[in-house]
Simulated assay, not measured.
Amino acid sequence: MPRIPSITRKRRSRARRPAARVGTSHPEGLRLIPVEAATATARPATIDKTYLELGHDALTLEQQHLFAAEGEVRSRSVSSTAKSLAFAVGETTASVGRAKSAAEKASVRHEQIRELLSPYVRRKATSSRGYMLRTAALLLGDTAGLAGAAIALGEYPALAVAQAISAGTATVTAGLAAAQLRHAQQAAERQTEDLPEALTPYRHLFNGPPKNMRLPGVAFLVAALIVLLVSVGIFALRSAIEGTISGLTFGGLAAAIALASFINSWYHADAVADVLESAQHDALVADRRHRRLAGSRLIRKAEQAGAQEKSIVAEHTHRGVAAGAHIEADKYRALLVSPDVIGHGPAPDAVPAPVTGAQPIKRVRPA
Rank of each mutant, 00 (worst) to 15 (best):
V364Y: 09
Q186N: 09
P346H: 08
F87C: 12
A254K: 00
A38L: 14
T8N: 08
R98A: 11
K362P: 08
M132C: 11
Y120D: 01
M132N: 13
G343L: 06
S95C: 11
L248Y: 01
A219G: 09
R3Y: 09
P5V: 10
A19R: 05
T173V: 13
V121T: 07
Q163D: 10
A103Y: 01
I361A: 10
P209R: 03
S278Y: 09
I257Y: 01
L284E: 02
L298M: 08
L298G: 04
H326I: 02
F235V: 02
R288N: 12
A68G: 05
Q64S: 03
N207W: 05
A38P: 05
A42P: 01
G90D: 04
E91L: 14
L276R: 04
F262N: 04
Q280A: 15
H110T: 09
V222R: 15
K362N: 13
V222C: 14
E155M: 06
R123S: 08
Q163I: 00
R363C: 04
G208M: 04
A40C: 10
A323H: 01
T126E: 12
V218L: 15
T24I: 12
D270A: 05
Y51S: 13
T81I: 14
Q63E: 09
T173S: 15
P18A: 06
R123Y: 03
I299K: 13
S77M: 10
A286P: 02
R363E: 00
Q304R: 14
I113N: 04
R31A: 14
R31C: 11
R14C: 10
V364T: 10
R17S: 05
L221V: 13
L146G: 03
K124H: 11
L66A: 07
D287P: 01
G295V: 02
F250M: 06
K83H: 11
P18T: 01
S118E: 06
G343Q: 01
V275I: 12
G145N: 06
L284D: 01
V275K: 06
A279H: 07
P157L: 05
A240Y: 10
E53F: 01
G295W: 00
L199W: 03
Y131P: 00
T81D: 07
D330G: 06
A314I: 03
L276S: 05
A170T: 05
R214N: 12
A279S: 15
L85C: 07
V35K: 14
L133N: 12
F235M: 08
A322Q: 03
V355E: 07
S77V: 11
Q191E: 08
H183K: 12
G252H: 01
A255K: 04
L153M: 09
T39H: 15
L336Y: 10
A188K: 15
E197L: 13
M213S: 14
A260P: 00
A254H: 02
I245S: 15
A329M: 07
R289K: 11
T126V: 11
R238G: 03
S84N: 14
A305N: 02
A184I: 03
T41D: 09
H281K: 13
Q191M: 11
H316F: 06
G154S: 04
V121S: 06
F250R: 00
T39L: 14
R319N: 06
V232N: 06
P5K: 07
R319A: 07
D330Y: 07
G243A: 09
G29L: 13
V351A: 12
L85I: 05
F206S: 02
T135Y: 06
S246E: 06
L195H: 02
G168K: 02
R289D: 02
H281T: 09
A223N: 00
F262Q: 00
R203E: 09
F262V: 00
A273H: 02
